[in-house]
């Protein structure tokens, strides 16, 4: 889950079997919006258009950023991809 403290968004493991906490993830503003969007199953297109609206950037650029961010989350095991 995320905790927002002093303007920072911190990813805190809740149910985990990882033992000692060696590293911790913090999210910037856009990362926080994306993470919130992932609370319910979602896809890159929906998230990208939400980002594009909020930050007034072209949808294709937002889609690229979202895809890159999701890839990093997936690589670190924080999310998993499902088939639509």
């Amino acid at each position: 889950m995320t905790r927002s403290i002093a303007g920072e968004t911190i990813l805190v493991p809740v149910q985990n079997r990882v033992g000692a906490l060696d590293s911790i993830y913090t999210l910037n503003d856009i990362g926080t919006v994306i993470w919130k969007a992932l609370e319910a199953p979602s896809d890159i297109g929906c998230i990208a258009s939400a980002i594009a609206d909020e930050y007034e950037v072209p949808t294709e650029i937002a889609a690229g950023d979202v895809a890159e961010f999701l890839e990093r989350l997936e690589l670190t095991g924080l999310i998993c991809r499902t088939e639509a």
Partner: peptide
């Protein structure tokens, strides 16, 4: 998204 070593995060966060 930033990944920090826990110790670095803790010290910097307490500082902030």
């Amino acid at each position: 998204m930033e990944m920090e070593r826990y110790k670095d995060f803790s010290l910097a966060f307490h500082d902030r």
